[in-house]
Design a protein around this nucleic acid. Structure first.
Lengths: 211, 211
DNA sequence: TGACAAACGGAACGCAGGTTCCGTATAGTG
DNA sequence: CACTATACGGAACCTGCGTTCCGTTTGTCA
């Protein structure tokens, strides 16, 4: 069940890898073996469960899925939001990586990214929640990263407009809102359904100047 | 702010038989004057409050706004959902009326309706919730009316496609989903913001064959 | 292997929100 | 004006869920 996650190879089970730990912490002593294992399991379970049900899912579901008690979960993540953040930050990083992917021209880059974003948002309900700000106020670090993403989209959009392929009478925020909105009804598990894909395509077509 | 997607009616109690009391109001004895007045106040308050906050708003908020106690509210409406239904059914009727409004041709009718729908959905968060099925299972009568609406949109869309102004490679459900999705981020109180209107316009443009 | 800090699990707590209960108030009537 | 069915208000109750607490288990190290 934890399959699709490994596609990125980004973390797997080694030491701390988030670029720069949250706080400039002084000499974190290494986790005990069982603790490290559980932490990993919790993260994997959270990724699955949050993707399927969004942030609304009860924390117990994550704990159960991970095969640990809630107490253990809270030992590793001080709040539900902290766990959510841990999951979503990674998702946002993946999206940000997609921004940089090369394409034929500015317009193509723009639409390629939007499609990618649609896929991810449709597939990961937590990402939807984070971007739609449906959950309460997301943690500062999350908000910051969302801000970065918005900035990138703004740039991407700006370039595509300059290139002449995309209408200018709309903001980058609105573009994101449209794509996210089109994914509102997406089913989470498994692959992205055709319906959602079609809806994103309509949005993209609405953004084109040519066509 | 508002929970939107995660909105979840709390239906406590059991999962008993649907009494299916299709009791067509038979000679209900007239309400006492104060009761009638309160019922009216509750409905008005609910319309306001649900429009602003969607179904996620606590029932106490409605009661307070109406200037009655919760007990009174429950005397008039057996559950929160029942009250919600009472409000939304009226909204749905208004939308259905808009379907019939005359326009130049099938294509124009279609887009005029979508715009109208966008306005209403953006303005009334309860309508959004009902159409996005964010709250759990909406009452049967609500679901039925939503079904009728979908049917009408299907017809409208079919005619517009036949008329040649609208692309055919999308279903009426998806069209509705797109408009609703575009309104996801709308602020409730006051008038529809330009941003939302722009987003709906992009969706409509994406649906056009010409342009 | 024994000792102990670290980690575990899950019962218990607190709060929020829907729903019920019941003592009190009042409209309507004779 | 008295009487009663109707209606009222809001405290109390119940459930779901996030979080905390604490007695028990276990990894690690000497």
């Amino acid at each position: 069940m934890t399959a699709r996650r490994s596609a990125r190879g980004t973390l797997a089970g080694d030491a701390e890898e988030p670029p720069a730990a949250p706080v400039p912490e002084q000499a974190t002593r290494p986790l005990r073996a069982d603790a490290a294992r559980n932490r990993q399991r919790i993260l994997e379970a959270a990724e699955e469960v949050f993707a399927r049900d969004g942030i609304a899912v009860p924390i117990d579901t994550v704990a159960e899925r991970a095969g640990v008690g809630v107490g253990t979960l809270y030992r590793h993540f001080p709040t539900k939001e902290a766990l959510f953040e841990a999951v979503v930050l990674r998702r946002l990083d993946e999206l940000l990586a997609a921004v940089a992917e090369p394409a034929d021209d500015a317009t193509a880059s723009f639409f390629a990214f939007l499609e990618q974003m649609g896929e991810q948002v449709a597939l990961k309900h937590d990402l939807f929640d984070a971007l739609a700000e449906a959950g309460v106020d997301l943690e500062a670090r999350c908000a910051a990263k969302v801000g970065t993403l918005k900035e990138e989209v703004r740039a991407l959009h700006g370039r595509a407009v300059a290139h002449g392929g995309v209408r200018a009478d709309i903001t980058a925020d609105e573009v994101m809102g449209l794509v996210i909105g089109a994914c509102s009804h997406a089913q989470a598990p498994g692959a992205v359904d055709d319906s959602t894909r079609r809806m994103v395509r309509v949005v993209c077509d609405g953004l084109r100047t040519d066509r």
